[in-house]
């Protein structure tokens, strides 16, 4: 941490003084050893590496291990030993229609949530950059409240907003003119009893809670673009649509790339919102991959081995996306 006066890091001058003749104490010798071998950064990293390894990396390895075992309730309580079963769990998953159904729901819901969040967030970010200072500060602090609302609360609130009797959403939709898709048939419509409306509601929750993060990131990026660029484009008669695709998007592409990958990772693994909206683990036809895996592990009878195989598949899918995220971050110079 400290460079010596001579500017040569790592070499230690023994302080001159009354103790210079005496043999060095154990502590002093230790300090010299640490500095000579440049161990300080490694020592500083030890606590974080230990915690992450024990509580995140090791469980990941265990998931992979359990996925090849017949780990169930009797193995958990220790009444019978765990056995290696090879790829049996994976074979069972591949032939399981519920797995494919849940995977389809995960993919489809992410395919709707991600673009919607990005579009809404970007539009709000662009809007914020055009507003006056006070108005922008007001809108962004109010939007941050939506982002700070806990997922459980947001989901419960949206369920209440969309409840069949007395909810605002159904009331509003009955007031919307018929040619816009509204009408009396919306009265008493249940948003939680089937997969499509339930995931529409989940999408609303996800977009509502995550658009502020996108908007503020885009705004931060927009601040880095010199205003003259837009000015000269405007003089040349460039419209806002062209200006976005010709100037803003190319310059902010690294930011958009990171935001896109982050959104994919978050929305593919969405759990809490869906868990609350579909009413815990009751309706199996509304499971996404994460919920299906969780239900396999934690509803009676628990099948930890099978669930670990599902969890491992989920992890691998997310890791593949993460590779793209890491590469984008490295390209952006985030590791400097």
């Amino acid at each position: 941490m400290v460079r010596t006066v001579s500017g040569q890091p790592g070499r230690v001058r023994v302080p001159a003084g009354p103790s210079s003749g005496a043999p060095l104490s154990f502590r002093q010798r230790g300090a010299i050893f640490i500095r000579r071998h440049r161990l300080v950064p490694y020592l500083l990293l030890i606590p974080s590496v230990l915690v992450i390894a024990a509580l995140i990396l090791w469980p990941t390895v265990q998931i992979a291990e359990f996925s090849f075992q017949n780990y169930g309730l009797s193995q958990l309580v220790g009444s019978s030993p765990t056995q290696w079963v090879g790829f049996a769990n994976y074979a069972q998953i591949v032939h399981d229609p519920e797995f494919w159904l849940s995977l389809r729901l995960s993919v489809l819901s992410a395919a709707v949530m991600v673009p919607l969040t990005l579009i809404v967030g970007t539009l709000v970010g662009l809007l914020l950059s055009r507003l006056g200072r006070k108005m922008a500060a007001f809108v962004s602090s109010v939007s941050v409240l939506a982002w700070a609302t806990p997922a459980v609360s947001a989901s419960v609130i949206f369920v209440w907003l969309a409840t069949p009797d007395g909810g605002v959403v159904d009331w509003f939709l009955t007031k919307v003119p018929t040619w816009l898709g509204g009408g009396a048939h919306w009265a008493g419509f249940s948003w939680t009893n089937a997969a499509l409306p339930a995931y529409t509601l989940a999408t609303a929750v996800v977009v509502w809670t995550s658009f502020p993060f996108i908007a503020i990131s885009v705004l931060a990026g927009l601040r880095t673009i010199p205003g003259e660029l837009f000015e000269s484009a405007r003089v040349d008669g460039c419209g806002p649509w062209r200006m976005f695709w010709r100037i803003t998007y190319p310059l902010l592409r690294p930011i958009f790339q990171v935001l896109f990958l982050l959104s994919v990772i978050w929305d593919f693994g969405v759990f809490t919102q869906v868990y609350v909206i579909i009413g815990e683990l009751g309706q199996r036809d509304e499971y996404n991959l994460g919920i299906y895996e969780y239900a396999t592990a934690f509803t009676m009878p628990p099948a930890y081995g099978l669930a670990s195989a599902l969890a491992f598949i989920l992890t691998v899918i997310l890791l593949i996306i993460t590779v793209g995220y890491v590469r984008a971050s490295v390209r952006e110079g985030a590791l400097q």
Partner: peptide, 13 residues
């Protein structure tokens, strides 16, 4: 980026 609903199985055990 590791999914928490996956790791929770191993951590539970």
């Amino acid at each position: 980026m590791l999914p928490q609903q996956a790791l929770v199985i191993a951590l539970f055990i």
